[in-house]
Amino acid sequence: MVTIRAQGLAVRLGRHPAVSGVDLDLGPGQLVGIIGPNGAGKSTLIRAMLGLAKRESGTVLIDGLDSERLSRRAIARRVAYLPQGQTLHWPLAVERLVALGRMPHLGPLSRLSAQDEAQVDAALKRADVLHLKGRVATELSGGERARVLLARALAVGAPALIADEPLAALDPGHQIDVMDLLKAEARAGSLVVTVLHDLSMAARYCDRLVLMDRGALVADGAPLDVLTQARLARVYGISACIQSHGDWPLILPTGRVKD
């Protein structure tokens, strides 16, 4: 169980204010989608919450503790992070790569225990990459690599998971698999935060959507309350067809709004 609370969070990248005055309260058992156009500050917000981007003002509380006072290791054990479009710098085997996820739990100079290895195998299985275990990660396809990196984040076994665009490069079948997986994590009591661009997926799976625009948080609530025609036009500059398909909403961008 973990809670993350951002209060008045502001981040500057160079001179550009990337995130300004964001208040966000995230608790266990939720699948929270962060949406917004390119450059809205979604990734920067996430990085600031993890202490990876230097914040200009505001606080981030993880489990009620100021994240600046927490060690990197303490944060790493609470929150697993899957960065956007991660590059791999050495051609590691898939199994070795996923096992890196156990690092926050290892003592100095200790080796992986049988329990650690079981966690690694479980993560490989859940991300549907167990069959790639012996392959070299840099020789996989983009989608396979994305799932291996998701397995790496799952292997941490942290009570919170923050995934930045986990669906990029995935085929439609695996997009559904990954969203089902994230949903199952949330249902099992984890806090799952994910940046998404597919609005239908976001509306269908997420318990809550956070809409960002030019560094500010412009809407936060149930998916269909957030995704209104007027907001899509204002924030994304699109007109969209919003329908329901059975129990699920379908949001189909139909054109650019000229203003």
């Binding site: 202490g51 990876l52 944060i75 992070y81 960065p83 890196l100 690092m103």
Partner: peptide, 20 residues
């Protein structure tokens, strides 16, 4: 050695694994 392994995932990746 472990820090170097974590850096395979880049700086953000390594720091998110608890490396200072």
């Amino acid at each position: 050695g472990r820090t170097l392994d974590a850096l395979t995932l880049g700086e953000d990746g390594a720091q998110a694994l608890g490396i200072d």
